[in-house]
């Protein structure tokens, strides 16, 4: 074999290797994507994204729990004292500072996802040191605005997207 010949074949091989590797990487990528993506929520799950709830029967100081996207949502009709306590909280006392007025549409009604922001348990209403909710799993205390006050949970109970369809009805999602 001559030197020139040898060099020729090796560049040709290099070229083929590069092309094959590139196509290979793209191909594997294109193959892996659907495999990863199939695990995300499917269309039927996404389609169930909103519900309407009749709230006319809820008495002052009571709460109901409804299931939305497989998660509990608390709808609480707060008493005057509860509203007052929530509104007058000093922002410095909060772990995740947020004004009560930014968490409600009408101050009488508090709507929050009933999932502890720590590891997902359902907190119990009317319990805990701040008389809002208490999570039994690892001891997180929430206040009457659903804000985290004490315990391992990092953030306030989430306020879902919702709107008042009428005075007696809200649409969640």
């Amino acid at each position: 074999m001559s030197k020139k010949n040898n060099k020729d074949t090796s560049t040709r091989r290099d070229f083929l290797t590069t092309v094959t590797a590139t196509v290979g990487v793209v191909g594997v990528g294109a193959g892996v994507l659907p495999i990863i993506s199939q695990m995300n929520p499917d269309s039927s799950v996404k389609a169930l994204a909103s519900i309407e709830v009749d709230i006319s029967n809820i008495q002052e100081g009571k709460e109901i729990t409804v299931l939305w996207r497989g998660k509990p949502v608390f709808i609480k009709r707060r008493t005057k004292e509860e509203i007052q306590k929530a509104e007058q909280t000093n922002m410095k006392d909060l772990m995740d500072p947020q004004e009560d007025k930014d968490r409600v549409k009408k101050s009488e009604w508090l709507v929050v996802v009933g999932v502890c922001t720590h590891l997902g348990c359902v907190p119990i209403g009317g319990k805990g040191e701040y008389n809002g909710w208490f999570c039994p799993c690892h001891g997180s205390h929430y206040d009457t605005s659903g804000r985290i006050r004490k315990g391992p949970a990092p953030t306030n109970l989430e306020v879902p997207k919702y709107e008042f369809v009428s005075n007696n009805k809200i649409k969640i999602g």
């Binding site: 990863i36 695990m39 995300n40 929520p41 499917d42 799950v45 996207r69 497989g70 998660k71 999932v115």
Partner: peptide
């Protein structure tokens, strides 16, 4: 969400 394939278990 990816692990669950849903918004909850």
């Amino acid at each position: 969400t990816w692990l669950w394939g849903d918004y909850s278990v």
